[in-house]
């Protein structure tokens, strides 16, 4: 009986959390679409998410591109397919690695920061203070972060795509002695518009999920410093898992 009740409790807890997240999402979306819009805050969040994440996302992209070129070379040289390296690098980066790795890095940086900031505001009564000052916390805190996250991730990933492909180019040309113009031609030759667009759409979805999880866990944090710490961890873990699951689902939609 104890075992069964534990399963029941866990299932109910999961369904309750799912319901809360769904309600939070609908409420947040409705506030994103209705005025007033806090443009100053949206701009500030865009700079925080887009501009300040550039170094970490750029570094991730350049090394990913470099490793991809090296690995592809060592594998493809076994059956004389070295000429496919440029195509493999550009398709891997634009379709998968750019959005997924960029999303995971931003989840670690921005998701955690949002959860910690909103969590601290919650436990120090700053969220209540906003309400007493006739300001809706969803509009003031959550909506700008969701809008900025959804808008900035595609731009970040676009930059990451370029940097990642450039990383592959550096290794191919300067370490593996490929001809520079041939490598660039190969990169363009098989790249399709949809490869890039699918990655950017994925990035927008990941940006939304990262901001949503950061805001949800921060907004609902309880119990002082420990609660804020737990909210931060939960935000990063849940956003990362959702990015991986969403990536599979979106890939299925785009390329099946």
């Amino acid at each position: 009986m104890g075992f069964l009740s534990a399963i029941g409790r866990t299932t109910l807890g999961f369904l309750e959390a799912l319901g809360k997240i769904t309600l939070f999402t609908f409420m947040a979306l409705s506030h994103c679409l209705r005025p007033p819009f806090y443009l100053r805050h949206i701009g500030r969040q865009m700079v925080e998410i887009g501009y300040y994440s550039l170094p970490v996302v750029g570094l991730t992209a350049v090394f990913t591109g470099m490793v991809l070129a090296l690995q592809s070379y060592s594998g493809f040289s076994r059956f004389n397919a070295e000429s496919a390296i440029a195509t493999v690098v550009v398709l891997s980066i634009t379709r998968e690695l750019g959005p997924v790795l960029g999303g995971l890095m931003v989840a670690g940086r921005i998701g955690a920061a949002m959860a910690a900031e909103l969590g601290t505001m919650r436990v120090t009564e700053q969220v209540d203070a906003l309400t007493t000052l006739s300001t809706n916390p969803f509009k003031y805190l959550v909506a700008p972060r969701l809008i900025a996250g959804t808008a900035m991730l595609p731009l970040l990933v676009l930059v990451a795509d370029i940097i990642g492909v450039f990383g592959g180019y550096l290794v191919a040309v300067y370490r593996l002695d490929f001809n520079a113009s041939t490598y660039i031609n190969s990169t363009w030759q098989y790249l399709e518009f949809m490869d890039v667009v699918s990655g950017l759409v994925k990035a927008a979805c990941f940006g939304f999920v990262i901001s949503l999880m950061g805001c949800y866990h921060g907004y609902n944090s309880r119990g002082g410093a420990q609660g804020v710490g737990a909210a931060t961890t939960n935000a990063v873990v849940s956003a990362s898992i959702m990015i991986l699951v969403l990536n599979y689902l979106l890939t299925g939609i785009f390329f099946s």
């Binding site: 505001m121 009564e125 700053q126 209540d128 203070a129 007493t132």
Partner: peptide, 13 residues
């Protein structure tokens, strides 16, 4: 109609 002074002041950091 309300003003509120919170216990920890709750100023926006």
């Amino acid at each position: 109609k309300f003003g509120m002074l919170f216990q920890g002041a709750a100023l926006f950091d």
